[in-house]
Amino acid sequence: MIEVQHLSKRYGPFTAVDDVSFSVGAGEILGFLGPNGAGKTTTMRIITGYMPASEGTVTVAGHDVFSDAIEAKKRTGYLPETPPLYPDMSVRDYVTFVARIKGVPSREVRGRVDDVMKKTHIADMASRHCGKLSKGYKQRVGLAQALIHNPDVLVLDEPTAGLDPKQIIEARQLITELGGNHTVVLSTHILPEVSQTCNRVVIIARGKVVAVDTPDNLTARLRGSETMYLQVSAPGADVTQALAAIAGITRVKAEAGGNGLVSIEVDCEQGRDVRRELAATVVHQGWGLLELRPMRMSLEDIFLSLTTEDAGSAPADAAPAATEAASA
């Protein structure tokens, strides 16, 4: 549905987007992840036809966004970072205005406006001026605006920014519902959002794509080994030796706290579940098992490791937890 090929955007000597390529299939929800200033907004602005690219091409539903701009724009809905509202217009007037300029046929305008206002839960604010709405409502009116012409492609720039937790959940639900009927590209720097709503993630840093994958694959790919975290109460015992003897365990790192409490990180071979053996050993030794849980590398860690300085190197090296562990 969206094809981005070798896209670059330069502002004078500054390169905001550098040779970015990816594609989004119909009905897919793609998360666009990256630190501030990574080039997310610039890429989205190019996809929506707000600005032309310096190099490369973008097609939306087969229409080039530059040479066939009008057709591409008819199929794209865009919610910029700040919802583009006219503060003096009432919500209904505003949505109606957008419906007209987006090319909704005159006799369908009224019906579409009602539909979209119902869908985004803003019908109760229809006669309120846009400038007087709360942040959450502004965002929803922005979403209504993007949906009004029932576009194939929805581009949402940080759709949940500035919302309260309840609104965030509602917004995510709405976005998940929209996927399937629409192809959605959303940018965010809130990581749980990506794993909850997106089918695929593009991680971008300093204008370059550093990873494209599903959230699950990304997590798996960056984990060279499985790590377990234990906390035991074992006054005066040599915890490290006892645990290292278990088959499949490659490394044990123990750290003694007060009152005989020991915090332990255990690395084991990938795909091997050693939790039973760990528990059995602890019990067998007569220690108290206070906590046992797998340490997953969260999307946060992946994100940090991919977007910090040596982002170009191999994923295994890039994972800070793994490198630290090997040397201990």
Binding site: Y50, T76, Y78, P84, L85, V98
Partner: peptide
């Protein structure tokens, strides 16, 4: 200033 230019320029208008 208010960002509504983004709306106009991304709408199917010349």
């Amino acid at each position: 200033r208010s960002g509504t230019m983004e709306l106009l320029l991304t709408s199917p208008l010349t």
